[in-house]
Design a protein around this nucleic acid. Structure first.
Lengths: 221, 221
DNA sequence: TTACACATTTAGACAAGTCTAAAAATAAGA
DNA sequence: TCTTATTTTTAGACTTGTCTAAATGTGTAA
């Protein structure tokens, strides 16, 4: 069964919302994700429910059905593979790949995606450090923490970001922070939770709690 | 000004129709190209005319305006560059690239296309031998004839096809005819205009007039 | 030049996705 | 539990692109 561009975006939105702590996607949450009105969302949820992609009860919100999950993870797979292509092959900076991948992810061809995956060397993470689901929709798991959970003295390696906005990524460029950057945590301020880090060499930088929350790291022994 | 997927397809259709002998695209011709009804075409021609992309007079048919030509050639540029990508990088056979490129051509990003062009080594022809317009929309011209215009004794090199249907291209695969294949014309039958060719080595094959018409060749001295 | 065939346009309708405004349901505080 | 604030849904309308059926225009053969 063929889904429209729009339907696909709704499924992806619901997936994103229910991926973490939230178990059920509310109408308003979806509306914010797809940047539309709550009324439009209600209509679409009804439609997607009729088609079997989501479980939806009036006033109770929506979750993806198994079919819905499949569609959403395949979209994410396509999105992230295209991001790798744009970054690795076409040399786009990481802050520019998301927007173009939003278009490319809707291209319809299984053969295309499996060939692209191969061409790229079956990458397991995209340019932001997000895992790329395999063709069965399985994600690679990884031991990671957001940088606001660390303590003074710990050594960490940047492995991802939880925010893909151009502004945030450009700010990281400015700080010369990218995937693979290693830090030692020098201090965590009680007052505003800002964190002072020392880069591999000697440079020191201080970031706000806001920034730390959006940086994913893994611990180094 | 942003065009919809559908509007772009109409402009491309009018371009294709008026590219050769026909000077004006009639409603029915467009309807056949975009695979829709004449009534729908009339509506769309009115709209595209209002927006300044075509010159259209009731009952007289349509031609592209300068802006329309620009849009259409950029679409063709994108289409053919993606075809090169699919064929050269992802190793799709030439009969499969068209369909996927029909989707990819609508992706919107000038930067993407200029990077893709570079990544591919600024190719000047697509996998079917069609010239790729440059970013100003200029086409490379080439001395070429369709194979039904040749005479016995002439030596030719296959440089293109005028038909991109999967069936036709698969038939050529079967005959082991591809871009760059060299032939000597052995005989042209008066009766049915079928042509007997000798391949570089020694193999001989006979093709119908229908096939010959759709093969583009250039002469070898 | 008339008559007919064919091409084209108009009229009216429909589906998808959107909107605003109003109504209804739910949640939360006193 | 009652009242109010917030969320969600419904109602009705609009846009885009499509359709069929009917009306109109154009071109050609007799």
């Amino acid at each position: 069964m063929l889904l429209t561009f729009t339907e696909e975006n709704y499924l992806k939105a619901i997936f994103k919302i229910t991926e973490r702590a939230v178990k059920v996607a509310s109408t308003n949450m979806v509306a914010e994700q797809v940047n539309t009105s709550a009324a439009s969302v209600t209509d679409m949820l009804k439609k997607l429910s009729d088609k079997g992609y989501i479980n939806y009860e009036k006033y109770k919100g929506a979750t993806l059905s198994p079919t819905g999950v499949k569609v959403a993870t395949q979209l994410i797979r396509k999105h992230r593979l295209w991001e790798v292509f744009l970054h690795d092959k076409l040399k786009f900076p990481w802050e520019q790949v998301h927007e173009i991948a939003e278009q490319l992810e809707h291209i319809n061809s299984d053969d295309l995606i499996s060939r692209l995956d191969n061409f790229l060397g079956n990458p397991r993470f995209d340019p932001h450090g997000d895992p790329i689901p395999n063709s069965e929709g399985k994600f690679m798991l990884r031991n990671q923490t957001s940088l606001d959970m660390v303590h003074s003295g710990q050594r960490v390696l940047v492995v991802g970001v939880t925010q893909h906005s151009v502004d945030f990524l450009k700010y990281l460029n400015q700080l010369k922070v990218k995937l693979g950057t290693a830090f030692k945590v020098m201090a965590v301020t009680d007052y505003d939770k800002s964190i002072t880090l020392e880069k591999d060499g000697a440079e020191t930088l201080t970031i706000t709690h806001q920034v730390a929350k959006n940086l994913l790291v893994k611990f180094q022994k």
